[in-house]
Design a protein around this nucleic acid. Structure first.
Lengths: 223, 223
DNA sequence: AATATCCCAATCATCCTACAAATTTGGAGT
DNA sequence: ACTCCAAATTTGTAGGATGATTGGGATATT
């Protein structure tokens, strides 16, 4: 007969409760937490226990404390924070390559599993890309282009893929921006997006793969 | 004039020092840490401060404490621990799909960037797969097969890709095992590996892509 | 002598109080 | 209305006390 060793420390219980409050957005990002005294009463633990829990989450990247001011919610995902730290120490080229690998997989899966709602969202993003290109607004185009690709990843209907893609994209924004404005072939890119959207709309997996491979090839050329 | 806000809390300083000791393997995995009293003196901080630091690392997955026994080093990578927790909450199919995406990218990159050393390692792993297949030892074959794929990822020469692949493979071991033994077509798989190794040896990117796509297709069929 | 049981020391878990340092807030004085 | 300073608020650090758990050594039993 096994003992279940169900013993869970108070600190871990408090950590779990706070994590849950953050994930469920009862404490949204940017929100200031109640002071330690109130939290002690709310969770029914001592100051030490509470502080150990809060510090665990600070180190995980979910919270941020400032002496004299308070504690605020910084991120809702521990993985995101750990990812950011790891990426900082990684080679930029390596990171971009992995991101493109995710993008390639996402395009195929989007073509396979897309819903009407996801397709509509992709088409909206494509229109915004074209509008920005027409205005020759480079900054806006870069943002719209990134949003477009995120929409495709979302259409893959794979939550983990979507999470990883966003965690890898956001900290790379400035790098992606720099690479994209090296030479933006506006008309060309617009066509690529159009063909890709067509392939996803018609659930043409082969076509999606083909055009994403072209896009990735062009992107890698600039590295 | 900016204040540099150089203020770093004692807890964070202790956390950094311990992290460094673990990463540099001065405290290898499995090692038992000195008791809290000694660490207090060594780092020159109070009990509270030290405990908050240790708990931050416990929550990050680097350490593990057992009341009455002591504290041991559990892992050397915070990302790995965060990944494990995230994967536990993710859909199994989603996770396997992302893993296959990484595998696909790795095969192409291995064909492109392989070194002689990496190729030699891959060939050793392939031989072990074949030996296990010849002995009809299923368990050994699964392990050898996973090692083989890890060797290919390593040959991609992309450290981030390698890290992510291992973080996603290890916690999935039992699932991968179950899927693989559903129907192991020993001879068929052996040939696939042979062709893939040939493509990598001859730096035939197209060939590598083709055979990995076949392998992935077969794998996904079984899901 | 071998084995099982019990007890104790070591260690972590939790709680408490006190004070220090940083920030915010509000009021006194101009 | 503005400036400056003091008090209140809030987190940071320290040290002590007690409870809970583990592991091993001492003791007792066969």
């Amino acid at each position: 007969m096994l003992k279940k060793t169900n013993r869970v420390s108070l600190v871990d219980q408090v950590v779990s409760q706070i994590e849950h409050l953050i994930e469920s957005e009862k404490w949204p990002i940017g929100e200031k937490l109640p002071p330690e005294m109130e939290l002690m009463e709310e969770f029914g633990v001592s100051r030490n226990t509470l502080r150990e829990a809060i510090h665990a989450l600070v180190h995980a990247g979910l919270l941020e404390t400032k002496q004299g001011s308070g504690t605020i919610v910084r991120s809702s995902s521990a993985l995101e924070a750990a990812f950011n730290r790891h990426i900082e120490k990684s080679n930029l080229i390596d990171t971009l390559e992995v991101r493109l690998a995710l993008e390639r997989e996402a395009a195929e899966m989007a073509a396979k599993h897309r819903t009407e709602e996801a397709l509509a969202e992709i088409e909206v993003c494509m229109a915004q890309c074209q509008a920005a290109a027409k205005k020759d607004d480079i900054e806006e185009f870069v943002i719209a282009d990134i949003t477009f690709h995120k929409a495709i990843v979302k259409a893959s209907n794979n939550q983990l893929l979507q999470d990883l893609y966003e965690y890898m994209t956001d900290p790379l924004y400035s790098s992606i921006h720099d690479i994209m404005i090296m030479d933006i072939p506006f008309d060309y890119d617009k066509e690529i997006h159009h063909e890709l959207v067509r392939a996803i709309r018609e659930q043409d997996v082969e076509g999606a793969r083909k055009y994403v491979n072209e896009y990735i090839h062009a992107f890698k050329e600039r590295l």
